[in-house]
Design a protein around this nucleic acid. Sequence first.
DNA 1: GCTTGTTAGTTACAAAAACAACTAATATCT
DNA 2: AGATATTAGTTGTTTTTGTAACTAACAAGC
Lengths: 154, 154
Amino acid sequence: MDTDFELQDFLPYLLNQAAEASGLAFQKHYKERYGMLRTEWRALFHLGRYGALTAKEIGQMARVHKTKISRAVAALEQKRFLTRQQMTQDRRHENLHLTKAGQAAFADICAAARRFDDQITAQFTPQEVATLKSCLSRIAGLETRNLPKTKNSN
Amino acid sequence: MDTDFELQDFLPYLLNQAAEASGLAFQKHYKERYGMLRTEWRALFHLGRYGALTAKEIGQMARVHKTKISRAVAALEQKRFLTRQQMTQDRRHENLHLTKAGQAAFADICAAARRFDDQITAQFTPQEVATLKSCLSRIAGLETRNLPKTKNSN
DNA sequence: GCTTGTTAGTTACAAAAACAACTAATATCT
DNA sequence: AGATATTAGTTGTTTTTGTAACTAACAAGC
């Protein structure tokens, strides 16, 4: 009756618990202070970090479905954190770029993210952190793809 | 402008991506085959693994809010995977235990979980797996609690 | 030019999650 | 005993997500 299989050893469970705990703790920096949802923060991050992008590009980089991006962009636009600009060559694409306020929010949250990350990793040795991050990347399929395909390949 | 901070290095992001990828891949074993939601699978697991429990106990062990447990239990009951039994000493508590069908589903999914876990961990060295799991436990707050408290302490 | 196909992004509707308010049973305090 | 507080679990309402269908712009074939 599988008497020695502990849920605490099951990777999807552990990953989920760790992701939830850290995600919930970090939320306050974008949710409490700016009323943003996680997808909004991710979109903001990509625009802040990589400059003007289209919605599609953000979706691909952040691995988020286009409908979520669409709504996140609309929300960020309403908060005056970004503006849209139709591209003349192809009017289907729209170039998104952050406003001053958007850039300020990005810088602020980004700094918080760094501190937050440092705070977690400080509990471990550099060696452990390196292993942790590399394993996570592999599992997430961000590097070598060894896992069964997910549905999120939008 | 934080030009060297990559989202791929930010732990909450990495954790979330890894959790989503692995969770999505494992879903098929409980969702496709049994039409269960993740919370249902977790509740089933706890009952299969630890014997009869009350809804509250499951919630505490699995770190899930009581409303989600309540609905998961109702769904499992409807699927004839468990039965309820009011306790006479305190009629507020109800003891939940799996039916034959529930036990069968548990055994089946559990075996799949083992295989799934083995498949992921096979990519890494035993040393790496040990580090990974211990770091995740720490971050999840399942052992030493070093992180800011989360809202989920129901 | 006109059909057919594709692509970027939006919208509408259904499923699931979050949160708050509730009921019923028991415990506590006086 | 009777008022008040707690506790286990449920229900209802609001957000957020997932999914599919849609619009508008462009591309290709003929």
